[in-house]
Nucleic acid binder design. Structure first.
Lengths: 121, 121
DNA sequence: CGGCATCCGAGAAGATACTG
DNA sequence: CAGTATCTTCTCGGATGCCG
């Protein structure tokens, strides 16, 4: 954020906004929250529509924010697994009310991602 | 969204993301949730750093999404009051866990907006 | 396989000035 | 007072291609 603003810059909520306002971040947290670990291409396939770059960018940012952890194995072929950190799991729990709110407003209640998130409860 | 994607387009969560991913939307919901009604310049002053255009745009979008209501009075000087709809209040309640999560992660827990939101509980 | 580098376009956000 | 109008800047997300 370029702009200086007391109320914003000093506000913890800004950090969250920077995270969840990324288009795919919530979805990634959602799908990751479902399994103990997922590989790059697993996520790529699950989130049909996301580009590799955007996924990589978002994963990097989430990792930097401590939401997800990244473990790479020195294997051939290479393997990298992503999973939620404890903090990430808390985030996933925290967004559930928002997801529920979204479901109530929506006409079509069927959604793979959504079911995934809610199943976690 | 330009991109076609089964999993996303048919997912109710996408609507939420479109709303809360706007940088200022959550903040506006937060500050509005605090008072019964607020005028344009009240919000503008409270959210130091937002430009009139951005505020107008965001208010318009939130209004279109049914999150906030807009009531204008035929007076001189003109008066327009914004407030949360019932749905908006639900959204505000729903984001509280996320806000709390943000507070736990943050080092500086003091935040006007934040206190505002949490006070509503 | 799991990415990173590069380039590009669209839209969000900002600054400033102006109006009904 | 409550916005518009305009112009600019910036970031995001997508496409493609290369590499260890």
């Amino acid at each position: 954020m370029r702009q200086e603003s007391k109320i914003i810059d000093t506000c913890p909520i800004q950090g969250v906004i920077d995270i969840i306002s990324k288009k795919w971040a919530i979805l990634i947290v959602a799908v990751l929250g479902n399994r103990s670990a997922m590989r790059y291409n697993d996520i790529l396939n699950e989130l049909k529509g996301i580009s590799p770059k955007t996924l990589a960018d978002t994963l990097k940012q989430l990792h930097g924010s401590g939401i997800i952890s990244r473990q790479s194995f020195n294997e051939i072929p290479p393997r990298v697994e992503y999973s939620l950190t404890r903090d990430g799991e808390k985030l996933r729990d925290a967004i559930i009310p928002v997801v529920n709110w979204a479901v109530d407003r929506s006409s079509h209640k069927d959604c793979i991602i959504l079911q995934s998130v809610l199943r976690g409860r």
